[in-house]
Design a binder for these strands. Structure first.
Length: 334
DNA sequence: CATATTTGACCGCT
DNA sequence: AGCGGTCAAATATG
């Protein structure tokens, strides 16, 4: 359930990955420290800070949520941990049934301080509960189109105990709706949905679909063993990476909202359409997290268009970065 | 008036 | 029995 693509079946490896990323950023920072781009240094420092924060969050989450879960399934085989089948014995019925469950921790940045940033979906609150042992109540939301379109997606939002500026958001179920009635910030999303409905699940269509394209149309050297399709659905949630990837976009739902994003310019989802010819190389891997931050809710549905240079520049990576990752980008930037 | 939120009641699971 | 999740009537909002 709480699976990540780190080859360890747990978040420990992820934290290591994050720490590696931090180290890499520190190295970059050292290089640029005496340089002529204080802004870059600032950005690097900010990235380091944010990744560190995520790592801490991850460790906290691991020791609470995962810990509780693992305690309840203590007898389960460690190897089966990553498949969503810890209930081998009691497969009859669970309260959460077969709903996909994805957890993310988001800050109020991009939101209004009382709510996490908009995730480009219309939610309607249907309940609130005081949760035992938690300082803050949990809000229950379902998709606005539950009745009109039978969309069964729900989410639970709860302010974290540790840091009131952060929320734990749990998405349950998949969106089956086409959000053509979304009136607010995502006005442009409707058209995008019509043409590329698989992207409607992404919090940041431009950034997410870019990386979706990257991960689905490119051959990437994985850090760990190849991921099974079922596991692909789960990664990116318990993971602190700012994106979730999926080679099966139609089943991905509710990506974490990146807090800061260089993708502030408009773009169309279909500009980043996945090449059908590359569907056989759709292995999803755990990227060294692209530091894409500063997501604004107002960018939901915005059309963004940029080229490779801009992307790499925005990602603050050298052009050869992808080469280092053994990524074949030839078919991507046509 | 239509739609969204609040909130106590209800229900199923452990 | 207690807890978490959902329902639905009352209320609020535009």
């Amino acid at each position: 359930m709480a699976s990540v693509v780190d080859g360890n079946g747990g978040s420990g490896g992820l934290v290591v990955t994050e720490l590696g990323h931090i180290k890499e950023l520190v190295t970059q920072l050292e290089v640029h420290l005496g340089g002529s781009s204080p802004d870059l240094c600032k950005q690097l420092a900010s990235q380091i800070s944010s990744i560190t924060e995520r790592s801490i969050s991850l460790l906290i989450t691991t020791s609470t949520l995962d810990g509780a879960r693992k305690r309840s399934a203590a007898a389960a085989s460690p190897l089966s941990d990553a498949s969503d089948a810890p209930f081998v014995k009691a497969t009859k019925k669970r309260k959460t049934k077969n709903k996909e469950r994805h957890e993310v921790r988001v800050s109020t940045a991009g939101g209004d301080g009382d709510h996490p940033a908009d995730d480009c979906h219309s939610w309607r609150k249907y309940g609130q509960k005081e949760i035992l042992g938690a300082k803050h109540p949990r809000g229950y939301y379902r998709c606005t189109h539950r009745h009109s379109q039978g969309c069964a997606a729900t989410k639970q939002v709860q302010r974290t105990d540790e840091d009131p500026t952060f929320f734990d958001v749990v998405y349950l179920g998949e969106h089956t709706c086409v959000q053509s009635q979304r009136a607010s910030a995502a006005a442009g999303q409707a058209a995008a949905d019509a043409q590329a409905p698989e992207y409607k699940y992404n919090a940041n269509p431009g950034a997410s679909s870019l990386l979706q394209s990257l991960t689905s149309s490119l051959t990437v050297k994985a850090e760990g063993p190849a991921v099974e399709p079922e596991q692909q659905l789960l990664q990116g949630w318990d993971a602190p990476a700012p994106f979730c990837f999926s080679s099966t976009p139609a089943t991905a739902s509710g990506c974490l909202v990146p807090e800061r994003s260089p993708f502030s310019a408009p773009s169309t989802s279909d500009n980043w359409g996945v090449s059908p010819a590359t569907s056989d190389s759709n292995r999803v891997v755990s990227f060294p997290p692209f530091e894409v931050t500063l997501y604004r809710s107002s960018s939901c549905g915005d059309d963004v268009q940029f080229g490779f240079e801009e992307v790499m520049s925005a990602l603050d990576r050298p052009d050869g970065f992808l080469d280092d990752l053994d990524i074949d980008i030839s078919s991507f930037f046509a």
